[in-house]
Design a protein around this nucleic acid. Structure first.
Lengths: 232, 232
DNA sequence: CAGTAATGAAACAAATACTAATCATTGATG
DNA sequence: CATCAATGATTAGTATTTGTTTCATTACTG
């Protein structure tokens, strides 16, 4: 069953949608505030996010941007924006904000369901491409959040896992520390410490990759780190 | 190519930055006064604005505030502030002024480029576009910071890499040693030694370019060095 | 072709960046 | 609220890069 997270301060609307979506085999969860929303986001890892533009604390644009910034974690999460009026829409869809679709209020529930289906179909198409990755003896099943090294399952922490799949998404790309932290922790990550190094070090250990000629994560001196792609 | 607008009354600095940024595939434009700056801002619609805090007419804070006020037009425009000293910084970043980052003078050009990249990545997550230069069997993928010689990846240090892309930016141009050091290390790098020669020598070795009829880097006796462009 | 200046690159030194161990903090869990 | 796991910060030790010196070699000059 698809999990849908709705961030909207209109409680009544939330309940209505929950009931309605249930009929289409979707389980909806409502967060009335952005902070509650982020909490549920982490907990539920929903398949789709419905976001109201008008919200207390921060507006929907802001939330959308934040989520997109943490691209490795929620970069793929489809987002549907609910706008108060049809006007502002240009900014929303596909553009810098990275929402996948929008729907002006008021709307027909059926219309909403149609759009949800649309989005989910779209996103699942390219999700399949990255579901299981296998590079150089390292196998990641992202739907299970499981990593196998030479057929043995590794026990990775959240950060370690996120770092790994970020690396694997862009093999051979050299990431600077700043870049890594920004991608892993979101926009405003200011780093004064060797936290990234520590994280990499821990991941390397679990990957058994501490020799001077690394199998997976190479240090690029003066720049950052690189995940080594297929060797030819 | 990214367009960068610099508002700064230090003409020399502007020129230097323009040249430097060129190497990183950014086109810089310098406005010496705020009014000229606003004019260019409208005309160019740059991807990023670099703003000196100390300016004639109005100071950088003021400009920043004004730009942020016209949020519909330039609300998204990333702004990098150059401050004379590191003190005032709290007010600047992210706060009521809405700058995206700051950099205290004096700074290393490399540092500036790193910050620009950071900001641009944050504001629009589009570093998938790669620009690849290919000269005479030497291939540089600047987004990955990867250099291939006859299809083999080279392991270059930071300085070696910087030197190489500087050369490749201006094939057939003869650089003096002074010029090279200034471009590589920042504004008024004083050099009493043969550091440049050593650097070139090291790069040549990695490029396998030590024969008397060089493939890439030619010595111009009494002058400096030249990177050999396409042979016809 | 000798004399002189410029260059290449080896060897050493200094500066800088990285690793990993350790400690501190945070946040979750019962 | 005590415990434990995850993550951030600090730091000593180490490795790498970069700058400097030096000397043999090379290219120019008269």
């Amino acid at each position: 069953m698809k999990q849908i997270l709705i961030i909207d301060d209109d409680e009544k609307l939330g309940q209505l949608l929950t009931q309605y979506l249930e009929r289409y085999d979707m389980q909806a969860h409502v967060a009335l505030t952005p902070s509650k929303g982020f909490e549920l986001l982490k907990k539920l890892k929903p398949d789709l996010l419905i976001l109201d533009v008008m919200l207390p604390e921060k507006d929907g644009f802001e939330i959308c941007r934040e989520i997109r910034a943490k691209s490795s974690i929620f970069g793929q999460l489809p987002i549907l924006m609910l706008t108060a009026h049809a006007e502002v829409t240009d900014r929303i869809v596909g553009l810098e904000l990275g929402a996948d679709d929008y729907l002006p209020k008021p709307f027909e529930p059926r219309e909403l369901v149609a759009r949800i289906h649309n989005i989910l179909r779209r996103s699942s198409d390219d999700n399949n491409l990255r579901d299981i990755k296998n590079i150089n003896g390292l196998e990641v099943d992202s739907s299970r959040r499981e990593v196998k090294l030479d057929s043995e399952v590794l026990d990775l922490t959240t950060m370690e896992y996120e770092l790994l799949i970020l690396f694997m998404q862009f093999p051979n790309k050299t990431f600077t520390r700043d870049e890594l932290m920004n991608r892993l922790r979101g926009i405003d990550a200011e780093l004064f410490s060797r936290a990234v190094d520590t994280l990499v070090s821990r991941l390397r250990h679990k990957l058994n990759d501490t020799s001077k000629t690394p199998r997976f994560i190479k240090t690029v001196w003066g720049r950052g780190y690189t995940f080594i792609g297929e060797q030819i």
